[in-house]
Computed example of a mutant assay.
Amino acid sequence: MTSVLRPARSDELETLSALCLRSKAYWGYDAAFMTACREELTLRDTKGVIVIEGDIEGGTGPLGLAQVLVTDDIADLELLYVHPDAIGQGLGRRLFDWCMAEARAQGATKLHIEADPHAAAFYEAMGAVEVGRAPSGSIPGRFLPRLIRPL
């Protein structure tokens, strides 16, 4: 599959937000859960967002996206989502590698990740280590794996 990484554009925020929701729904969450996540998965700007684009659904478009934001020596992986039709094709790894390179370039020494429980094994395969739990930003009483990946 041919794909390219490029910065997100402000005119595609709605499309990218829909991709995040579609990717999250891949894990079988019910409608109420997805409604609760909508606000948190709605992109408001393109700061730190990279898109992986390629052939999808009869055309070319976003196959995934990631967002990394750096403060001092800490990078936060805010988003990493892959279109359900493209999961398992190495795009998540490419996005994660970009996030690590971008974080290093901005002076970060570690990457913080609050992962969906279904994604924790992926991040561990990328070298991250679970260090605790973090409260969900969408679902009261739900906790997410908190991981750190040294850079």
Rank of each mutant, 00 (worst) to 15 (best):
V70S: 06
G107W: 04
A66P: 08
K110A: 13
D72E: 14
D116H: 07
F96L: 09
H112R: 15
Q106S: 10
I74Q: 12
W98H: 14
G92Q: 02
A66M: 09
Q106C: 07
K110P: 06
D76E: 15
L91K: 06
A101M: 13
E78I: 11
P117Q: 07
Q89D: 05
A75M: 11
P84F: 11
L80D: 02
Q67R: 15
L63S: 09
P84E: 11
G64L: 02
W98D: 08
A108V: 04
Q89M: 13
G61K: 06
A115R: 01
G107D: 04
R94I: 01
Q89K: 14
A103I: 03
L63M: 10
E102I: 02
H83D: 14
H112A: 15
V68T: 09
P84R: 12
L69V: 13
T109G: 13
I113W: 04
P62K: 10
V82N: 03
G88S: 01
L95I: 05
Q106F: 00
M100Y: 08
T109F: 06
P117K: 12
L69P: 03
V70I: 11
T109M: 13
G107N: 09
P117W: 04
L95T: 00
H112C: 14
D97I: 02
L65D: 08
A105W: 03
D85N: 14
R94M: 05
L65I: 13
G107K: 10
Y81G: 01
L79V: 07
A108D: 06
A101C: 04
Q106D: 07
A66I: 07
R104F: 00
A105P: 01
C99Y: 02
G88Q: 03
Q67K: 13
A101Y: 05
M100F: 08
E114N: 14
A108M: 09
I87G: 07
L91N: 01
I87H: 04
G88M: 01
L77A: 10
V70K: 08
G61S: 09
A75G: 15
A115L: 07
L80K: 05
L77I: 06
G64Y: 03
L79T: 08
Q106I: 02
L79M: 14
A108G: 07
